[in-house]
């Protein structure tokens, strides 16, 4: 039994070491781009309107570049993330956001999965109560 325990533990620590080494050895986020991290975070949530299912962060199209520049400028002007999303929504609609906002249109979208999950959990609970 002790043998079992030790061999399991040693294999597990080997695995953890491998994964940690990989990530420790890599430098984290040496961003030599011209765009700041925050810009890219926001850009990843904006849909590229002239591409097939890409965000403007991934896309190299002209529109994507212009929108990224715009986001950068707005950030420098002091706007926060939500204000930038609002700015874009006012001109392009909710369609341009890859993370759907929470409003009357999308309330079902956001809550239905969790409602189903809750019902499932209640069912499990009731099942075992018997």
């Amino acid at each position: 039994m002790k043998k079992q325990f030790c061999s399991i533990l040693s294999i597990c620590f080997l695995y953890i070491t491998i994964i940690s080494n990989i990530t420790l050895a890599e430098e984290k986020n040496t961003q030599l781009n011209f765009l700041t991290n925050k810009t890219r975070e926001i850009a990843q949530n904006i849909k590229c309107l002239v591409c097939q299912n890409q965000s403007i962060d991934e896309s190299n199209s002209e529109l994507a570049k212009d929108l990224k520049k715009l986001i950068e400028e707005k950030l420098n002007d002091g706007l926060d993330e939500d204000e930038i999303y609002t700015f874009l929504r006012e001109r392009y609609g909710d369609y341009i956001l890859l993370k759907p906002p929470l409003n009357t249109n999308t309330i079902l979208l956001w809550f239905l999965p969790f409602i189903i999950l809750v019902f499932s959990s209640i069912y499990i609970f009731k099942f075992f109560k018997k």
């Binding site: 949530n45 849909k47 965000s55 369609y95 341009i96 890859l98 979208l109 999965p113």
Partner: peptide, 30 residues
């Protein structure tokens, strides 16, 4: 439940559009 979630994410933009014409996008964040 997980399957239902993926189904909701896939079909919701369509159904919303059919319902009131509003268009939304659903990306990885959802």
């Amino acid at each position: 439940t997980a399957t239902a979630t993926v189904l909701i994410g896939t079909l919701y933009p369509l159904f919303l559009d059919a319902f009131n014409g509003d268009k939304i996008s659903i990306g990885p964040a959802y």
